[in-house]
Write a protein that binds this DNA or RNA. Sequence first.
DNA 1: CTGAAAGCGCTAACAC
DNA 2: GTGTTAGCGCTTTCAG
Lengths: 351, 351
Amino acid sequence: MGQSRNRRPTIIDVAERAGVSKSTAARALAGSSNITEETRERVVKAAEAVGYERNHLAVGMRSGRSGMLGLVIPDITNPFWADVARGAQDRAARAGASLLVFSSDWDPEAEAAHLRTLRRARVDGAIVNPVSDSFDDLDRFGLPCLFIGSSAERFPDISSVGSDIAQAVRLGLDHLVAKGHRAPALILGPKSRLARARFLRAVHEHCVERDIDPAIMPIEDGEYTVEGGREAMKRLLDQPRVGHLAVFAANDMMALGAMMAVRDAGLDCPRDVSVLGFDGIPSGEFAWPGLTTVAKPGRAIGERAVEGLFDEIEHKPEHRRIYMPCRLLERGSLADLSSMAPKRAAGAGRN
Amino acid sequence: MGQSRNRRPTIIDVAERAGVSKSTAARALAGSSNITEETRERVVKAAEAVGYERNHLAVGMRSGRSGMLGLVIPDITNPFWADVARGAQDRAARAGASLLVFSSDWDPEAEAAHLRTLRRARVDGAIVNPVSDSFDDLDRFGLPCLFIGSSAERFPDISSVGSDIAQAVRLGLDHLVAKGHRAPALILGPKSRLARARFLRAVHEHCVERDIDPAIMPIEDGEYTVEGGREAMKRLLDQPRVGHLAVFAANDMMALGAMMAVRDAGLDCPRDVSVLGFDGIPSGEFAWPGLTTVAKPGRAIGERAVEGLFDEIEHKPEHRRIYMPCRLLERGSLADLSSMAPKRAAGAGRN
DNA sequence: CTGAAAGCGCTAACAC
DNA sequence: GTGTTAGCGCTTTCAG
């Protein structure tokens, strides 16, 4: 039966079977033009007959293109990053490329190790959510590369794809205004985080447009976690206030924590307190009430990132920064004060 | 400066710099024994100096081992599978291997396409949650391979790793009994699903041990989705019943849907209805009340699967079936009837 | 202990 | 149009 049981058929097996040279076989399989239709057919049949499958290792070696891309994200277990990975995966597959996925756990060393692995694997390029602050580990990457997520801003020379924070904040704030909450309290991430500054800047821009004094919005900080949000909300509730309280949290986890704090305090969301989140994680859907939130387009970001990476690989184009629009997911954590403003007396105007 | 800017250094660059032949350089770098300590040092230094990084494509070609593994799961966006992927990733990385991740969306054609891609990429083996019913697409895989998840049972010849459904069901049922619910209603998946049969068999075993007539447990079917669970619970609530109702859902999504149906009916969980889930998805934590559930060890399954796959690749060992233990996540969706059984009169005994 | 040479599977020049 | 040849970067005999 020709080839032995343990050996995968090579192009030589195909060539022999078709009675041509291996280069002719290769040409036929590659769809090259300088080939008799009849020969091509014979080769294709032979390939099928022996069960030939192109060896991408060999192709990659010869052509310098492995057909693989790397993806380094903080944690595939995080729903946002899973979404990104899914988008990247699908887009890559559509182009016949495969994705090597790694989780860095926000650890610069792990990130560096993964990048090294990707380099050795000879991926054609990589998409990275940069953790490392120093450019050192990253610029030495020496491969086409595109950054993703808010931390990408730190690196002026590298193209990036991310969500449009300014648009997202405006979307959320506009929605709050429409519901009768003009100046919500803010629950933000740690001061050290770049995302926090961008979020706050967008809030200020909105305030200028709407002629609101940003200073009247209470702000609490916390870690980007449920516990962080819970504690921040607790502090917010301890402050004196009149009427309904509306809160815009910079992250769904924090928003979920905030809702817990509301319950802890014996209050009701959305009756006493309105909460707006930011991210769009699935858990928000099953909270009670459902968490209204501004959803980041994780999947689209992943897809767009792969496209951008391909550009980077092929044309080495001008550096680009792409922001994908977010959208509002209305569920139930926001009270509608707009129609009953008169009834709410003092509180309604202020909040 | 020797090598051009655009070329990655090869072992020849290292050899030249160290003043040895490329074979000696290779041996030194591979940690072979037949090398003078002094030579080795010189080579290693040279490698560092030129920034040498082994080309895994070339290594793979020569050695027949690419150092890559494939993972084909239904959807990386699903928290359970993300967990599995994370475990696999970490375990693979620890062994110096990389993971090619694909989502099949429960589509046999997509699965087949991904397997083909993996074969062409010359992965050393693959971990698959088989979707395809027919053995055809799969047995031709022709590579070391290990199945994962409950559908793996369909393939008697292939090793598999999954969660221990029997143990999980027992755990859940024992917990229900401890809380005073002897014969809960069951919300199960579609009759066509293998997992359903296994779940039900485990329930029956438990009943035999506890001397309970399984026939007294109401059963409703549904798709493994929120909507499926919601409708199933609705039907359950429409049935006549006495006292408290306890439900064991075969999947957290369904359990979450069931909790919604309880709310829809104007009832309260856990006061009127107790719900126990199965999976351990994060969303259950943020539902209100938190969903008590039996959690599958996704991460551990992923890790164990990679280990099993390595065995498969190396020793081609006897076929194995491995079941990983689940654990109970107690949150708040279960009423404790055990202490107040007398107060509850008729209902307590039955449920 | 080290060097020379062969070859993994493929593609791209270069002949004919 | 098709065959011949070289070589991608590496490891592994086989000599010395």
